[in-house]
Amino acid sequence: MYVAVKGGEKAIDNAHAWLAEERRGDPSVAELSVPQIREQLKLSVNRVMAEGSLYDPDLAALAIKQSRGDLIEAVFLIRAYRTTLPRFAASNPVETAKMAVDRRISATFKDLPGGQILGPTFDYTHRLLDFKLMAEGELPTAPTAPASGEAVPHVTGLLAQGGLIQPEPQTDEMPPDLTREPLELPANRALRQQALTRGDEGFVLSLAYSTQRGYGRTHAFVGELRIGRVGVSVNIPELGFAVEIGEIELTECETVNQFTGSKTEPPQFTRGYGLVLGQSERKAISVSLVDRALRWAELGEDFIGAPAQDQEFVLSHCDNVQATGFLEHIKLPHYVDFQAELELIRRLRSEAIAEAAE
C-alpha cells in the first residue's frame, strides 16, 4: 500500500529554530565567539581543517560553532563550502625540511642533528583534571624558543646515507586530486595518502592500532615527528619564478619499519609517511602506520588478509562524511520499502502457518 507523504515545512522551520536555541544554550552564559574557538579549541579546529581539506582556522571555528561541537558535521560544512571556492593556482610541494619547528622528536635517535624539541604536548602531563581552568587567572606564559633560520634535516636521511632505508621513488607526475576527482581503485600511494589524511581520525587510528597488534606487517619506530610552519609558494608565469603566498601549520611523521627483504627488495628499513594539516600528531602517526601497511604489494610482501592491508576496505570506509551520509540516510522516510518488506513477512508467515497446519 502506497501512502503519499508531504513534507511539513512548518515542522522543519520549527526544528531549525529549536536547533538555533539549543546551539545558543543558556542566554545568561556568555556566547562563545569564533575567535575563542579558533584560539582555545585549536586541536578541534585542526581536525576539522584536515578532514575538511581546507586550511582556514576561522572557517573551521565557525563550522564548529554552527555544528554545536559535532566535528563530523563541521567537516561536512567545510567540505560543502570548499566546493564553492574558485581555484586560482596549484602550489608547489612544501619543503618540510625547512619547517620552522615547534615540536620535533625522534624515538630512534637521541642526539639528532638540530636537537629534540618537546614543544606543546600532553605527553608529559598528568591525566588529572585541572580545576584551576574553571577559575579566571593570569595568562600562562611559555619560554620562547630560539629562532633559527636553518633547515632541519629529516632523521631518515641519516639512514639513507648508509643505504639502510628504502629510497623514495621520485616522479614529476602530477598526482590525482581527491577533492576534484572521485576515488578510483586500485589507488596509487599519492591518492591513498590524500584519502588517509582527510579520513576520519578515529577510523584511521583504529586501523593503525590493528597493525601494531599483528594485523599488518609493521613493526614501527617513530623516526621523526615534527610540527611547525612551512611556506606555501606558487609559480607566477608572468614573473618566471615562484612567490611565497603564506604559510601553514603541518604535522609530519616518518616511521621506520623492519623489513627482512623480499623477492624484489633487499633487507632494509622501510618508511611509513603521514602529513596532516595543523597540529595533529595522533593522526599523522596513524596515517604513517596505515600507509606502510598498504605498501605490501610494492614491497613484494605477501598479503596476510589484514584489514589495514586491504586498500579497498581502508579507502572506501575511512571518509567520515561519506560514512555519515550513508549511515544517517536510513533515518529518512523509507515507508514504501518498509511496506513491501512488511507485506513479504506477512505472506511468508501465512504460508508457514498454513504448512504447519497440514
Rank of each mutant, 00 (worst) to 15 (best):
K10L: 13
G137S: 06
V48A: 07
P86A: 05
E343G: 15
L118C: 00
P186F: 09
T255S: 04
K283G: 03
A340I: 10
W296R: 04
R213L: 10
K132A: 12
K263L: 06
N46A: 13
T144C: 01
L41N: 07
P57N: 03
L133P: 00
R271D: 00
A187R: 10
A4H: 12
V256K: 02
A323R: 15
G240F: 08
L275H: 02
E341K: 15
V234E: 13
A306R: 05
V222H: 05
L185T: 07
G214V: 02
C318F: 03
F313C: 01
R127F: 07
G240N: 06
R346H: 12
R346G: 01
I37H: 06
A30I: 09
V48K: 04
T251K: 05
D102R: 12
T84Q: 14
E355P: 00
V222F: 06
G305S: 07
R198P: 00
I78W: 07
I37K: 08
E51G: 03
E249H: 01
G278P: 10
T83R: 15
A195S: 14
T121C: 01
G325H: 05
P182Y: 06
L275N: 03
A142E: 14
T83N: 11
A284E: 06
E351R: 14
G240A: 05
G300C: 05
A293N: 09
V336E: 15
I105V: 15
V5Q: 14
F326Q: 13
V94P: 01
G240I: 07
L77Y: 14
R189S: 02
E358C: 00
T156L: 12
A17E: 14
A195C: 14
A293Y: 10
I236H: 06
A20L: 15
G149F: 05
E265G: 00
E181K: 12
R87H: 02
D58T: 14
G137L: 07
V48R: 07
F259W: 03
A308Q: 07
K331F: 09
E252Q: 12
A187H: 08
S286T: 10
D130I: 02
P143C: 05
Q258W: 01
V314M: 08
P35K: 09
L19G: 03
P237H: 07
G69W: 09
P140Q: 10
A4Q: 12
R68K: 14
G52K: 02
P176I: 03
S67V: 03
A60F: 06
Y209C: 00
Q193W: 03
A160V: 02
A11Q: 13
R229W: 11
Q36R: 11
E168A: 12
A145T: 10
E21Y: 09
N257E: 01
A11V: 14
Q193K: 11
Y124P: 00
M134R: 09
A340C: 02
V287H: 07
R271I: 05
T260W: 01
S262C: 02
T96E: 04
I227M: 10
E312H: 11
G149L: 04
R213Q: 14
Q170W: 03
A142Y: 13
E95V: 12
G216V: 04
R23N: 15
I353W: 01
Q311D: 15
T260I: 03
H329V: 05
T324H: 06
G223L: 07
Y273G: 00
E184M: 07
G25M: 10
G278N: 08
K283D: 06
E312N: 11
P140Y: 09
E22F: 13
L207S: 06
